[in-house]
């Protein structure tokens, strides 16, 4: 797989899998308004994934790429595939950490040497602005409320997971050399600044010495069992009648 394809799969698979997990909260979020906002953002995210897949027509249609690959072919970070729990605090913290990383990445991609990707990043960035505002407002408000402890507990768990979003692969260097995207370590540092600023406002503390090791591997296709379960469920309707015309 060439470096650009790998990058596109990382971007697309992150959003597809995160969007699917977010969609699982439809009908279950704590309040109606939040439920609608969450479902709408999940839909947006799956749309973002689709538009990244569309940049690789030589490899197949977006549907074929989204629903026709095995778990080992997915390049998403493990963080986004982890199964939901009943804890909405954990859902919100993952949403915040992931969407802050996505915002940093999109900002740099708008200046990418890959022109189609740069244009796409501008379009996605417009929609993502709201996603990030939603996450940051929720985290700040809840952090300043009696729910602070629940958010902090979730942050203690999810922070190490999120660090693995910036996993380095052999493609990383090639993408830097060709001006497609900055180095993962630079993105991570910028992410740490942004996440740190919101955490301070919210009265939260970023965990010290987090260990991302157990959460690495996603960028190489090494996933948890949760991804298999997700793909099974996501493709269930399609598999029931692969020839159906929608």
């Amino acid at each position: 797989m060439n470096a650009v394809h790998e990058l596109l799969f990382r971007l697309a698979d992150d959003d597809l899998v995160a969007g699917h997990r977010a969609s699982e909260w439809t009908g279950l979020a704590p309040i109606l308004e939040e439920d609608i906002a969450g479902a709408s953002m999940a839909q947006d995210q799956i749309g973002h994934a689709q538009s990244y897949y569309e940049l690789m027509p030589e490899l197949g249609t977006p549907d074929a790429l989204a629903f026709g690959r095995k778990a080992t072919e997915f390049r998403n970070a493990r963080m986004v595939e982890y199964a939901n729990t009943e804890d909405y605090a954990l859902r919100l913290v993952r949403h915040w950490l992931y969407d802050t990383a996505k915002a940093v990445r999109l900002k740099h991609l708008t200046r990418s040497s890959h022109e189609a990707l740069a244009r796409l990043a501008v379009r996605i960035g417009r929609e993502h602005k709201y996603h990030l505002a939603h996450a940051e407002t929720m985290i700040t408000k809840l952090g300043q409320s009696p729910a602070n402890e629940r958010i902090q507990t979730a942050l203690n768990q999810a922070f190490a997971e999120a660090l693995a979003l910036f996993e380095i692969t052999p493609a990383t260097e090639a993408l830097v050399q060709t001006g497609v995207m900055p180095h993962e370590n630079d993105l991570k540092n910028e992410w740490l600044e942004n996440v740190g600023a919101t955490a301070r406002k919210a009265g939260l503390v970023l965990p010290e010495n987090p260990d991302p090791t157990p959460h690495l591997g996603g960028r190489f296709g090494h996933h948890s069992e949760d991804l298999e379960q997700l793909i099974d469920e996501m493709t269930e309707v399609l598999r029931s009648d692969p020839q159906a015309v929608w």
């Binding site: 309040i31 109606l32 308004e33 939040e34 609608i36 906002a37 709408s40 953002m41 709201y130 505002a133 939603h134 407002t137 929720m138 408000k141």
Partner: peptide, 20 residues
């Protein structure tokens, strides 16, 4: 109308309810 605990959250919810 939206339910919300504060104006900032009300705007967040209003955007998806009514400006979508």
């Amino acid at each position: 109308v939206v339910h919300a605990p504060d104006p900032e959250t009300a705007v967040l919810f209003a955007k998806e309810q009514y400006a979508r």
